[in-house]
């Protein structure tokens, strides 16, 4: 089996930051629709992290481009092919960056007009589009069977919402710690998102173990191969199970996380989110071309 070596950590960071920004704005837009006054600090924190995360992520994509920085006029060609997922992504991310920048300017009272519900609904659509695109980018490729699963975009959207809430809570704890704003619904939502993420990762493992040989090879590399330590220790235990457990304790009122402890737990979720993408990228192997022969 041949590992893909073209998409490296730059792309993992791009997929991760795209998800973080989209997830932050998505949760803020829902909060805004529900009760703007009550969650105004959460919404401000999310708009501080939303657009910059996606923009910095896109910058890492630009750094990864072979000729993108030396010949910037070529960037306009990214819109040239309607059958390419990158063309869809460029359009969605460009719109997301523009609208979420406007939204942030409105939340910090730099501009007076916010566009009301129309802006919020378009932000929700664009945020789901951005998070989903990071998964679809990999999902449409039949050359790498491990990526070619419907589960990947869904998993990336769930992880984007989870990491987006985490990043927002970190910003809120740093900037608005003194203002006691109750964000219990987000914490409950975050707990269920992480439970859902665990179920989806479990499903991914089961499906891949029963898949074509290339998929079996990919998942074994994660479960028991060269990425096993990163998969189990960093992603599964520190990035997913431990935060889910702590959030679960909080749900049954056995624990109340706040301050620096909360920041550390949210940073673990963020590290887990990055490693999820990093590991899925690096476990990708090309489909076997000489399928009638053995190596």
């Amino acid at each position: 089996m041949v590992f893909q070596e073209s998409f490296e950590w730059y792309i993992a960071l791009y997929l991760f930051l795209g998800g973080v920004g989209a997830g932050a704005i998505l949760s803020a837009a829902f909060a805004d629709l529900y009760n703007r006054e009550k969650y105004v600090n959460y919404i401000k924190s999310a708009s501080l992290i939303g657009m910059p995360a996606v923009a910095i992520g896109s910058f890492f994509l630009l750094l990864d481009l072979g000729q993108g920085l030396t010949k910037p006029w070529l960037l306009i060609y990214l819109f040239a092919n309607p059958t390419s997922a990158i063309t869809w992504g460029t359009a969605i991310l460009s719109l997301f960056i523009i609208v979420s920048l406007m939204y942030a300017a409105y939340n910090f009272k730099i501009i007076k007009f916010g566009g009301g519900k129309l802006t919020l609904v378009s932000l929700i659509i664009l945020a789901i589009g951005t998070a989903g695109y990071t998964g679809v980018l990999l999902g449409v490729l039949k050359a790498i069977p491990f990526w070619h699963q419907t589960l990947i975009p869904a998993l990336f959207i769930i992880s984007a919402m989870s990491t987006g809430i985490s990043a927002t809570v970190v910003v809120k704890e740093i900037l608005f710690r003194k203002e006691k704003e109750d964000i219990a619904p987000f914490e409950t939502g975050h707990f269920y998102l992480m439970v859902l993420e665990f179920i989806m990762v479990f499903a991914m493992i089961i499906i891949a173990l029963n898949g074509v040989p290339e998929m079996v090879y990919s998942i074994k590399v994660l479960l028991a191969g060269k990425y096993a330590v990163q998969f189990w220790l960093i992603f599964m235990i520190l990035g997913l199970l431990l935060p889910t457990f702590l959030y679960g304790l909080q749900e049954v009122k056995k624990l109340h996380m706040k301050g620096n402890f909360l920041i550390i737990v949210e940073l673990l979720v963020l590290i887990g989110g990055y490693y999820l993408r990093y590991l899925i990228l690096h476990a990708g192997v090309y489909t076997e071309k000489f399928s009638h022969y053995i190596g």
Partner: peptide, 10 residues
């Protein structure tokens, strides 16, 4: 015109 995105490679 190739921008070097590597998508074709994968």
């Amino acid at each position: 015109i190739c921008i070097g995105c590597k998508y074709c490679i994968v």
